[in-house]
């Protein structure tokens, strides 16, 4: 059996974490090639519905990355992000999905290294967890 190569989705806000990801690229910081970024304007525009959709259809992990608290381009956006996703995690746990398959973190536009670190660690966590069991479940 070949090594498990997880498929991971990341939502990055335009102003901080997407820029941080760009900086990681410009700095040629190497990281595992499992994460696919969707750009949104603000982390608070990420509907938990997307996360539920992705995980229930077999995506192995979802990252939601925003600006640091206090740095939101839209003032209070990420406060709402920080309020929603812990609950989304608990709901995952309620139905038996490992809650660490969803991660919320903050990456600023200047934190290319942090982006690399978050991606590398998350891919490591998901590899350890193994494939999303729902990938095999046929509804």
């Amino acid at each position: 059996m070949s090594e498990f190569n997880p498929t991971i989705l990341a939502f990055c806000c335009n102003w901080c974490s997407y820029a941080g990801a760009d900086l990681a690229g410009v700095s040629r910081l190497q990281m595992p090639p499992n994460v696919h970024v969707i750009r949104v304007m603000c982390s608070a525009a990420v509907k938990p519905e997307y996360v539920f959709k992705a995980l229930s259809q077999g995506i192995d992990g979802v990252l939601v990355l925003g600006c640091h608290i206090g740095d939101c381009h839209y003032m209070t956006g990420n406060h709402r992000t920080a309020k929603r996703f812990p609950l989304a995690q608990k709901i995952l746990n309620d139905v038996g999905i490992d809650e660490t398959r969803l991660k919320l973190d903050w990456v600023s536009a200047a934190e290319g290294e942090k982006f690399q670190q978050v991606i590398t660690e998350f891919v490591g966590v998901i590899k350890k967890l193994g494939p999303n069991p729902l990938r095999e479940v046929k509804f």
Binding site: N5, A21, D22, V26, R28, L29, Q30, P33, H36
Partner: peptide, 17 residues
């Protein structure tokens, strides 16, 4: 930025991504 530069040593995986 999100692919070739950060997966320079994994051309196959980078292509798939």
């Amino acid at each position: 930025e999100h692919c070739s530069w950060i997966h320079a040593k994994e051309p196959e995986d980078a292509t798939r991504k």
